[in-house]
Nucleic acid binder design. Sequence first.
DNA 1: TTTTCGGAACTGGACGGTACAGTACTATCT
DNA 2: AGATAGTACTGTACCGTCCAGTTCCGAAAA
Lengths: 214, 214
Amino acid sequence: MDPQQSGAGPETGRTARKRRAILDAATEVFLQNGYLGASMDEVAAKAAVSKQTVYKQFADKKHLFTEIILGTTAQLMDGFRQVATDLDRATDARQALHDLARALLANLTQPDVLRLRRLVIAEADRFPDISGAWFEHGFHESLVMLGETLRRLEGRGLLRNLPDPTLAAYQFAGLVMYKPMNQVMFAGTPAGPAAEELESIAGQAVEVFLAAYG
Amino acid sequence: MDPQQSGAGPETGRTARKRRAILDAATEVFLQNGYLGASMDEVAAKAAVSKQTVYKQFADKKHLFTEIILGTTAQLMDGFRQVATDLDRATDARQALHDLARALLANLTQPDVLRLRRLVIAEADRFPDISGAWFEHGFHESLVMLGETLRRLEGRGLLRNLPDPTLAAYQFAGLVMYKPMNQVMFAGTPAGPAAEELESIAGQAVEVFLAAYG
DNA sequence: TTTTCGGAACTGGACGGTACAGTACTATCT
DNA sequence: AGATAGTACTGTACCGTCCAGTTCCGAAAA
């Protein structure tokens, strides 16, 4: 048997702890410096682990990178699941969509989320499989989920005329986030748009969306 | 006097020609490999120029990079100027906006344009000044210009109720491009969305926009 | 329950091989 | 006579490997 995981959960062994430390440290280093700029020595140092241990857990730099990137899709989906359940409880479309817009803006402009997006985009040429999988199972599936939620709002009479719910979800996200997201993605994360501007963008996005689907 | 530019235009001297060759080669190399992945030796080789000449024209790698990135804003603005003049000649709002949507999708999903976007975004942490300036003088100013064009359409009665023309321009761009742009930015430029899907996205974006502003 | 023990996991550092930014220097070209 | 080519060179950084010594963990033994 494997002496590391004899009986109990796999989260307790020494190896699992080290592995977790390596993943955390590597996340930090990759997000900060990009793939080429990240140094395996720095990862090992930040994880307080010898380089040998790193290479025992991960075959090489690329495998470590892959695991980190694809490990983020689950939590992205979780965030969308949360706003989706809020939306299912709504009784007023305008209010619910405004809350949704605020939640999207707040969640997706956090510095670490932005750095992750930058990293995935930056390596789309070098690692198309990784970036493509991240988009498919993180980004796109989240929007599909949001579309299904909009579809349910239509079923309850809060929206109307949704021929393509997924596209409608993308349209809503585009209305809300195209301006602020581009701004923060290109500007090296100094202060993003002011709070009142975000509020105005959210409000006007809701009005346009409701003019078509309300 | 400067022997390179004695009387005639500055584009004719030997030095200017070499400089142009370096810029072209470096553009290719940077877009292909990113900042860290780009090698100055490769730039010199592709430009058919000695490394010494490269360093005579550009103090170091960062200066060369800066010049290339910021040199692209002008042509981006030119593209938007073109679609803006088309819009000013329009007589039917629905038709004109549909043409605009098609033009945006066609222009901004070209592989080189995508690689440039990826590059600027990727280096937003390392060179926030460069990325910020590119966004401000390329991206944002283009959208402001588009907003002014929409404002003129409103003045001619083809649109109505535009409290913030720049925001309306961002909203239109978001409706049209949020889905396909994210898809191609994250997917490592395999074939993007099918032509008929792009057409559908463009059409539905126009309908939503007109429901609010038509 | 406590002690002991064997082996796997880990450390720390060195090392080979490679790649690259930027400089230096001489011969050549325009 | 200045610009350029060609090329060698310096210094540095990093990936991935290797090895000798040490630490940890789980189970058998007391």
